[in-house]
Amino acid sequence: MGTGRITWLMAMVIWGMLLQGAWAFSKPTEHSDIDPNLFRIDEQKYMGVKFGNEVMLLDENGKPFEFANLPNLPFVLVPAYYTCDGACFNVGVALKELLKDVKSMSAGKGFNVVFVSFDKNDTTESLSKFVKQLDIPGDPVTGWRFTRYEKPEVITQEMGKIGYKFFWSPRDRTFFHPTLVMILTPEGRVARYLNVLNVTPKDIELALLEAKSNQFKPSETLDYLVSLCYSYNFKEGRYTLSIPVFVGLGSFLLGIGLLVGSLGIYRLIYHRKNIGK
């Protein structure tokens, strides 16, 4: 149970740190052995980076997995390792719960979820065990894919390209890693980093809409319009209401109001005057 407890702790620590002020980690706490600053991702530096361009991934059955074969949809990339029963599992569960409440689209239709393992020791067996434990609803499960690297030696470098860092702690026999998911555009570029333990379904929905903003369907127009009222807040790591949109809209309505109102009021005055005559 030792490992499990520590990974739990680790997840809690990272979660706590992220809650405090997103990426602005300041100092390590007594619970952690390593500086959480190491996990910090300078989002602006990595936004737009293409993931999985020339990387070979293997799917659930050990067959080559190609992003190009996925439908042209944005996807949620979840870095994990399948023997992890702590943070990664919790990320998976949290994501599952969050996505349940994303009403405007669903996995497989509006987007895909792709897990990718950064543990070179993961196998088809560990993968399927993880999937079974995660218990994704739906029969058959659609839109959730689980992958691992074909060549273990590229893992650190490839994950590093999108700013994702992790460390193996031999003492705790566990990985230290952030509880992040990435929202990628249909062509595989990083659009957002979200901490699933810190966001709401709305944030995920907005990030997905943003990731495919060029290709929303007519039926999604309303969702898209709603999404314009929010903008991403790098400091808080979530979407916040964009006040200038409302100010702009309000002032436009004020303008129309001035037009209609002033003419209307004058009409009343004018008629009263003329009746008086």
Partner: peptide
């Protein structure tokens, strides 16, 4: 009449950002 308020609002937010430390933009 209809559009001037929008400009006035936009530049006001600019003023707040510049001098009052808000973060609208």
């Amino acid at each position: 009449l209809v559009f001037v308020p929008v400009l006035a609002a936009a530049v006001t937010l600019l003023l707040f950002d510049r001098y009052l430390g808000t973060h609208f933009f």
